[in-house]
């Protein structure tokens, strides 16, 4: 591939911990390069030498075949050496294991560590302790920046721009790392964001008008508990996965009631703009937060989200290694 379409310009991020540290230019830069990476994926020989000699370690403390494989494939297409480490969080005692594992990985001279961990802030911990670059592949209930980037990419690809669009995020805002990263990503790109869900699944300080302080990054984010109202004029609808534990923890009376109040179905979809995009970060509970025929219907871009995951991650890895005469 020629260099003209992939920008090598560094995007000013050593680590990718969350999108809060990204400027809209950084995000645009990653999305632009993603387009170039998609072209690489369409080649007959899907291999470019950009990260030759670099070691990428994926360190997964939660099982996630989709995200891990996507990173692995992205790194391999860019010719990095990939080492996969997985570990069960439950057997680790007091984090010595994360610290010691991290030191071991650093000793392998990992250039980039991709971490998924059930605890919020685990990637920050690694970034603080190690010299390697760190990519957050999902930490606890905090952030999932690469998911957000692929969501942004999917929106931009389908409706041209993000700025000014009305994006409705439905469901478990309280515990969703995807929602949190998307809040940063979407607001930075100038979208109009509406959060919709039962009040028990929206953080208290979002509900109580605590966002009036000057400079609050989410001051303009709207909260709406009635889904029909929220969906009016929506350009994009993102349904979130409802963790089945929420009912046991007292957040919800039943999945049935949730589905009735917040499930995305054909009637509700008709309230949104014609052709509004239907998105879901997966894995879906079909019949709970989204009906099957909507999930797989004409307006759904859910499969596309998964597909663009590899190209977005290639773009990120490429940008993080940029400034070193990369070839693609």
């Amino acid at each position: 591939m020629t260099l003209e379409t992939a920008s090598q310009q560094s995007f000013g991020q050593k680590h990718v911990l969350d999108l809060d540290s990204f400027t809209s230019q950084d995000i645009t830069h990653v999305l632009d390069n993603t387009l170039a990476m998609e072209q690489v994926l369409e080649r007959e020989i899907r291999k470019v030498p950009a990260l030759r000699g670099k070691t990428v370690v994926t360190l997964f403390y939660e099982s996630s075949t989709r995200t891990r494989v996507s990173f692995e494939q992205a790194a391999k297409i860019l010719s990095a050496d990939v080492i996969n480490v997985s570990s069960s969080g439950s057997s680790t005692k007091k984090g010595e294991s994360l610290y010691n594992t991290a030191l071991t990985i650093q000793a392998m001279q990992a250039d980039i560590i991709v971490i998924r961990h059930p605890h919020s802030g685990a990637p920050h911990f690694l970034a603080r302790q190690l010299r390697s670059k760190v990519i957050n592949a999902g930490d606890g209930t905090h952030a999932h920046p690469t998911q957000s980037l692929l969501d942004l990419y999917t929106i931009r690809k389908n409706i041209g721009t993000i700025e000014g669009k009305k994006i409705v995020i439905i469901g478990d805002i309280m515990y969703s790392r995807v929602a949190r990263s998307n809040l940063w990503g979407l607001t930075k790109m100038g979208a109009r964001v509406v959060l919709c869900g039962p009040q028990t699944l929206i953080p208290n300080d979002f509900l109580n008008g605590h966002r009036t302080e000057e400079g609050h990054p989410f001051a303009a984010v709207e909260i709406q508990t009635d889904l029909d109202t929220a969906l009016k004029d929506a350009d994009v609808i993102m349904a979130l996965r409802l963790q089945l534990e929420r009912q046991k923890a007292g957040h919800l009376p039943s999945l049935r009631e949730y589905s009735q109040t917040y499930g995305l179905n054909a009637r509700r979809l008709a309230i949104a703009k014609d052709g509004a995009l239907v998105m879901h970060p997966g894995p879906m509970n079909e019949g709970v937060e989204i009906e099957t025929d909507i999930a797989h219907g004409a307006q759904s871009v859910i499969e596309e989200q998964v597909k663009s995951g590899v190209a977005v991650r290639m773009s990120l890895l490429y940008s993080m290694a940029a400034g070193q005469n990369l070839e693609i």
Partner: peptide, 11 residues
């Protein structure tokens, strides 16, 4: 230090 050099949740 073992009790504190870890993730926030574990500390």
């Amino acid at each position: 230090s073992v009790d504190k050099i870890c993730t926030f949740q574990e500390a």
